[in-house]
């Protein structure tokens, strides 16, 4: 069977459009479901109160705060480490087998399942370093998990700065370090920030890495130090959905809604920063 060209065009367009729709629909449906069922639970009390009656009532404040602590800790650990690694790999490392192996390792870390990070964090931080199940252990585990995201995006951002900037800077008598600091990093910043915020979003949403390293089943108080256990939104959601009987659907979806909003907000910030800097890009 042969279609005349204009009709073939139309059919192809239609098929591609429908395929794209299939990609978007589930996302929209999930969001619709969560918003529809969860929005009713959102109240000032829900966001700022401790859980009550075995988590069947009250708020989710400790889980929100716990998630923020974990994410902040993960970034504090992973951003400097990842950025310095990216600078080394992009600006200093030469093409030797060792550096090729390092690059390969970084790509591979990104593909490791998150539950493996959880076990690794448990073995290293909780047991070996004896940090116990604590915010410290959880943050470090999440930090290691998001390292590849930060390194890869930072490297891409650094490599995208034109080589001519480096030559100009060096030719004006700047040292290599000054060149990186003043002629490269300022122009790589948006890309680095974008990667960082995507890392934040990922750290905020993962359950497996915090399962054995920090997450408390039920801890109706705010953590006092980095050696405390803490509740966290993703794990709290899991507990509410599978471990506690007779929880109001509203509370479950409300928790999911809060988590979703936090992650979406992070992504929105990333997109805003990127487009802001892109419009200012001058080369």
């Amino acid at each position: 069977m042969k279609f005349p060209p204009p009709l073939a065009q139309k059919i192809a367009f239609f098929v591609l459009f429908v395929m794209t729709l299939f990609v978007v629909l589930p996302v929209l449906f999930v969001m619709f479901l969560i918003v529809k069922n969860g929005i009713g639970a959102i109240s000032w009390e829900f966001l700022t109160a401790m859980p009550k009656q075995g988590m069947r009532a009250g708020g989710i404040l400790p889980a929100i705060v716990g998630t923020f602590y974990l994410v902040a800790g993960a970034i504090l650990f992973a951003l400097p480490l990842g950025l310095f690694a990216a600078i080394y790999l992009s600006e200093y490392s030469q093409d030797t087998w060792l550096n090729r192996a390092i690059r390969l390792a970084i790509i591979n870390i990104a593909g490791v399942p998150s539950v493996v990070f959880g076990l690794f964090g448990f073995a290293l931080f909780v047991s070996f370093f004896k940090f116990g199940a604590s915010i410290l252990s959880g943050s470090l585990t999440l930090g290691i998990m998001i390292l590849p995201v930060i390194i890869t995006s930072s490297r891409e951002a650094i490599d995208a700065v034109p080589g001519a900037f480096r030559e100009v800077s060096l030719s004006l008598g700047a040292t290599k370090l000054q060149t990186i600091r003043h002629a490269v990093l300022p122009h790589a910043l948006p890309g680095i920030l974008t990667g960082t915020i995507l890392g934040i979003g990922r750290a905020a949403g993962e359950t497996a890495p915090i399962l054995f390293t920090v997450a408390a089943f039920y801890l109706p108080r705010l953590p006092q130090s980095i050696f405390d256990q803490a509740m966290a939104l993703p794990y709290h959601l899991y507990v509410l959905s599978t471990q506690v009987p007779n929880v109001d659907v509203k509370i479950r979806y409300g928790t999911a809604f809060v988590l979703l909003v936090i992650v979406l907000l992070m992504n929105l910030i990333a997109i805003t920063i990127r487009s802001h800097f892109r419009s200012k890009k001058k080369w």
């Binding site: 900037f165 122009h187 001058k282």
Partner: peptide
């Protein structure tokens, strides 16, 4: 020993 490159290359 300063250098002027072929293409004008002001830093942004």
């Amino acid at each position: 020993v300063g250098v002027i490159f072929a293409l004008p290359m002001p830093l942004p």
